[in-house]
């Protein structure tokens, strides 16, 4: 039974004081888990992940990481504690080279750079080829890999991903999900928000279906994938999830 890494209880969060977007969410991520959060547009998936990382004000509830209370903790503390984050858009430093992007990822511990480069270039060979190329000149799919690699530089135990497949061509979507599974197999727990619900649930240990800022369904990925209620609502029955099916 793996240890609980991240635990959120009754989380409430929102950008503006009177308006909560996340309205009472529970979440568990165990060590080495791959967890997906899916749901319709506006459900609050992105806001949820941002509030876990200190980017959106938390108005209620608790978040614990490695058994420490980190509710509303500032970003740099979470980074130091072992959480990595990849935003959905603008997730690289465009005028910096691939290598410099990675270097910034390890800003807090510059001494581990060489070792980290070695491992990450192994996981992402295409980045090794292009280490001196400016990130802004790379294709969308390649940029996404840079973004992932940067977040992995400090060897986080948990990686938060905000819609990693968004805006990518089908071939690149395959690459990204495959890399994500590789990273997970190396022991990094992953919490990802995804529009591509089918693919996400298929590879997840557990999934959360969010609606209107609250948990709607939860369970092992494969179960949710086959749950008629979920299929009906989110996986191509009548609703938005259908457009993204793999």
């Amino acid at each position: 039974m793996a240890d609980v890494l991240l635990e959120a209880r009754d989380l409430r969060a929102g950008y503006v004081p009177e308006v909560d977007i996340v309205r009472g969410c529970d979440l568990d991520v165990a060590e080495g888990d791959l967890v997906s959060v899916i749901g319709p547009n506006g459900a609050g998936k992105s806001t949820l992940i941002k509030s876990l990382f200190g980017l959106v004000p938390v108005r209620g509830g608790t978040v614990r990481f490695k058994d420490e209370d980190v509710t509303g903790a500032p970003t740099h503390r979470l980074v130091a504690a072992g959480i990595g984050y990849v935003p959905q858009t603008e997730n690289v430093f465009p005028t910096l080279t691939v290598e410099e992007n990675l270097e910034m990822g390890a800003y807090l511990r510059p001494r581990i750079l060489e070792d980290r480069y070695e491992e990450l270039f192994e996981w992402f060979p295409i980045l090794a080829e292009r280490r001196k190329q400016r990130a802004g000149t790379m294709s969308g799919g390649q940029r996404q890999l840079v973004a992932l690699a940067r977040a992995l530089m400090l060897q986080p135990s948990l990686l938060l991903l905000d819609e990693p497949s968004a805006g990518l061509s089908p071939a690149n979507v395959d690459v990204i999900f495959e890399r994500i599974q590789l990273i997970n197999s190396k022991g990094v727990a992953i919490l990802m928000v995804e529009q591509n619900a089918r693919r996400a649930l298929a590879m997840s240990d557990r999934g959360y279906v969010l609606e209107m800022g609250q948990n709607r369904f939860t369970g092992p990925g494969k179960e949710l994938l086959n749950d008629p209620k979920v299929i009906d609502l989110y996986l191509g029955g009548r609703a938005s999830g259908g457009a993204q099916s793999a």
Partner: peptide, 23 residues
């Protein structure tokens, strides 16, 4: 220099710099 790169990173994308742990 590390600080120079951090300055460039901050200029590119302040939020991402913060998310990477840069002070």
């Amino acid at each position: 220099t590390r600080i120079g790169k951090a300055m460039r990173a901050l200029s590119d994308n302040k939020d991402l710099a913060e998310a990477s742990g840069i002070d």
